[in-house]
Amino acid sequence: MIATLEQKKNITAASADRKPVLFRISRVQKDTHDTFTIDLEPPKGGFYFEPGQFNMLYLHGVGEVPISICGDPSAHDKLIHTIRAVGTVTKAMQKLKKGDLLGVRGPFGTNWPAEESAGSDILIIAGGIGLPPLRPSIYHVLANREKYGKVVLLYGTRTPKDILYRKELEQWRARFDMEVHVTVDRAAGDWHGNVGVVTTLISRSHFDPSSTVAMLVGPEVMMRFTVLELQKRGIEPDNIYISMERNMKCGTGFCGHCQYGPTFICKDGPVYPYPAIKDVFVKREI
């Protein structure tokens, strides 16, 4: 499930002394009014990760935040993070520019079952800032397209202005071997796309529920309703994977902050098979 043993060793070595490794920023791009993407150049040796994993990003003097990795898992010469400016650290990161240095610890956490799902239909459902953590999986699936059945991407955001990776979405939509549906919560009359919650897209898309692996990321409310809808469509709980978010300080299970039921999101998650957290998923204040 998790990274290879060799990678794991590196992680242990890199993270245990809590020392971030400095990466230089090669590009900064504004995606939306509050979201931006930074490309980082790994030091020699490259950067290896599995789709779904995250890094702890450290900005000198401001702090460290967990951010999922959203680039291509097969491209080791570039590390990409899409960040939404919502807190002190991420807002400060918004001011970063090409050439600046950013500390990186990671990768941490479990991954999407991208490789393990060969032979199945792939249903990827993202809400809001949930698309970046799923993008590495999309890259992996598309790079090995022949190994999978139908591939469907459903993506919901607040307004058309909040849609991430527009160009790529257009490219994916143009493919004959991928179904892409985007919906927004609200839009003006000149919007030609869908309006409605992302769960309404499920019944509009084509996949075989008996052999579909669903991967979802979004606000918890969205994921709760999505899981219900997927089960209604006949997808087995075992084939539903969700990525959880909590306040992580260390990434290594030492700080205790990201406990979710009996698990630590940083090392037992962020990606869970739904049955693993089913019991706490509907519990409040867990």
Partner: peptide, 18 residues
């Protein structure tokens, strides 16, 4: 029922950053 549910979820404005 479905439309009401969809509307209610959207009412939450779950993607809002604040």
């Amino acid at each position: 029922d479905q439309r009401l549910e969809s509307t209610r979820i959207r009412l939450l404005d779950i993607y809002d950053s604040n």
